[in-house]
């Protein structure tokens, strides 16, 4: 394929090529600029920043700001650093992603392979979850969390994110399973596999690509969520995003910009990590060869 397309492609002149790459490199640098600023300034002592030079490399390299942001900085009223909130976020995001992905996979399986009267309508209604703005559900959700007795807790946040996430994860899995040959399910039925056995042994093993997409999507959204975290988490369950905001807005003493930069990078790291790790498993063509000759 690549050979053919190289042969048949219109030849681009070398001057044009240099020009194209120059522009691309410039754009890349431009987009990397904020990261550069954040990284360099998080590794400087505060005096170098307040001295007014944001763009230069640190004269004295130090990880003091990172240590402070992690364990001693003033967040809201207590000098705990971001660590407890980072743990809160992990405790919220892992179950929320896992549960919404599994439920989405089950929903997609049922909506495509165990069709029933009104399934399309039901699916349409579930899609509303993708379109309803967060703000609309704040008050009813607060009421429900109150009734369930999990207001202000991590479990409460997990519930909120699962409920909101099912719409998306169902959409992804349903559309993926729609192209999964129903004959495979029928063959498994004749072979004697039941509802969950078919799901576990036949459907899930080929769901890798869509599971990765769903996990990346859910993880990013839930980790980065601020509104639900700010609205429903008590002090003890506060997630990273809210804590970062409190760190930056704490009004005692001088503004430690280097600590703020370090905290912001910390808050962004897990999503980056998920992209790098999960992206590698994003392999296509798992379905190749199941059917047809």
């Amino acid at each position: 394929m690549s050979v053919a397309s190289q042969d048949t492609a219109v030849k681009t002149g070398s001057i044009a090529k240099v020009f194209i790459y120059l522009i691309l490199v410039l754009f890349a640098l431009f987009y990397l600029l904020p990261l550069y600023v954040m990284l360099t300034n998080s590794l400087k002592p505060l005096s170098e920043i307040t001295g007014g030079d944001m763009m230069s490399l640190p004269k004295a390299w130090t990880i003091e700001a990172w240590l402070s942001a992690w364990s001693t900085a003033q967040v809201g009223v207590s000098p705990t650093g971001l660590r407890p909130y980072f743990i809160n976020s992990i405790l919220m995001v892992v179950p929320a992603v896992a549960i919404s992905t599994v439920l989405g996979a089950l929903n997609g399986y049922i909506l495509t392979k165990w069709r029933f009267r009104g399934d399309t309508l039901l699916f349409g209604l579930m899609l509303f979850a993708c379109f309803i703005p967060f703000q609309i559900v704040l008050i009813p959700m607060a009421r429900i969390l109150g009734i369930l007795g999990i207001a202000g807790s991590t479990q409460g946040l997990v519930l909120v994110h699962v409920v909101y996430g099912i719409g998306f994860s169902t959409l992804y899995f349903r559309n993926y399973y729609a192209s999964f040959p129903t004959e495979l399910v029928r063959a498994a039925m004749i072979d004697g596999a039941g509802f969950f056995r078919i799901f576990w042994r036949i459907m899930l093993p080929v769901s890798g690509p869509i599971a990765v997409v769903t996990i990346i999507w859910q993880f990013t959204n839930i980790w980065n969520d601020f509104l639900f975290g700010a609205s429903f988490a008590g002090l003890s369950a506060m997630p990273m995003t809210v804590a970062l905001n409190n760190l930056v807005n704490s009004s005692t003493g001088v503004r430690e910009y280097n600590v703020h930069f370090a905290g912001a990078i910390m808050a962004a790291l897990p999503t980056l990590l998920v992209y790098i790790v999960a992206g590698r498993f994003f392999v296509r063509g798992l379905m190749a060869g199941s059917v047809k000759g």
């Binding site: 004959e183 004749i190 000759g293």
Partner: peptide
């Protein structure tokens, strides 16, 4: 009666082989 309890076997137009299993696993799954 459930398909698996009829003591029948079916060969499908698309063959419907389980893509994640080997030939041996495919044949002995039932």
């Amino acid at each position: 009666v459930h398909p698996s309890k009829r003591n029948i076997a079916m060969v499908f137009q698309s063959y419907a082989l389980y893509p994640n299993m080997t030939v041996a696993q495919n044949m002995t799954f039932g």
